[in-house]
Design a binder for these strands. Structure first.
Lengths: 186, 186
DNA sequence: GTCTATATCTCGATAGAC
DNA sequence: GTCTATCGAGATATAGAC
């Protein structure tokens, strides 16, 4: 990788952490300068504005999400096992979720009210999960696979939200285990 | 009510709508000026700063929340019926939730990451629901009433979140009916 | 490719006339 | 009690030196 590309990814990774921990609109260019140790001019050389950074972050996240799907499909031989792996991922993130909420949910929530352009950038992450989950329920011969997928997405978002609001990761653990148990009965 | 009090409540009500529809940090003093038709000077005469407006809004919301509890206790003679009334309230709000999310959840989410002082203002709304729901489950002789209350809060927050993200109030309706049905089996 | 310096805008907050 | 006028801080964005 060239130096320019390295810097670009470095900016994206540091900004991603920043946006996750503090929110997008609360994160200023100066915050990114401090977090990276780079100059403001250098950052705007690589990204024409703040939105371009967000776009780069979401592109990286989409690749990661698709990579998760691939991994779960390799590790789980049945849809049931794959749904379990999905739940395990949430449980593995319990510390971060307690502190900062769901990376996808909190970002989407920040834009959904009144920033349609940024909202349109984040929605594909949600849709990717929705589609993948739907496929799992279809394989399980659910007639309402789409609805089941949205329902599960909702449950997980709710758990993440309340876990974050009450700073209670034990709650997340219990709720996700309940969901896994409901899958084990399928 | 004196003229001053009337103006005060008028500012609070208009700001409440504004904060709900656009978010707190995205709503500026100028927005409040436009929404109310009052001058900036007049607004700061009644509220020393933006946070004071938020405090006034939350105080009003808390009164409304307590009034709901009272109403549900009058209308519902059993905890089961009262939980149903709680669900009906969510369903009645489906249009607003689709457009702007849960008024309590979205506000809390906005502050929970990095504005501890404002977060501390919103949390009591969440806690009020948590306590009231817990009481209902206690009356139903649940040994884990607290957990059930948080679980229900989470479900509702998740439904609201996904409804808002996908702009799909039909989903909210279906999910809330499912929850009501689970209560009917108690 | 990286830096410093600067321009412009909008925000929340304040001062003072009426 | 309501208004107009203005301040200072911090934001994004741009220009230009090295």
């Amino acid at each position: 990788m060239k130096q320019g590309e390295k810097t670009k990814h470095y900016i994206l990774d540091e900004s991603n952490k920043l946006f996750y921990m503090n929110g997008y609109s609360s994160s200023s260019f100066s915050n990114i300068v401090n977090a990276t140790g780079l100059s403001k001019g250098n950052i705007t050389y690589h990204f024409k504005n703040k939105q371009a950074i967000l776009e780069g972050i979401i592109a990286k996240r989409m690749i990661e999400i698709e990579a998760s799907f691939k991994q779960w499909e390799e590790q789980g031989s049945t849809p049931k096992e794959r749904l379990m792996l999905f739940c395990d991922m949430i449980i593995a993130e319990q510390e971060n979720i307690e502190s900062f909420g769901c990376p996808m949910g909190t970002l989407t929530a920040e834009f959904s009210k009144n920033q349609p352009e940024l909202y349109a950038l984040t929605l594909p992450m949600f849709s990717a999960y929705r589609v993948w989950l739907k496929e799992q329920f279809e394989e399980l011969d659910f007639s309402n696979a789409e609805e089941e997928a949205m329902s599960l997405l909702g449950k997980v978002q709710g758990v993440a939200m309340v876990t974050h609001a009450f700073k209670d990761k034990a709650f997340l653990h219990k709720e996700m285990e309940k969901i896994k148990e409901s899958f084990s009965r399928l």
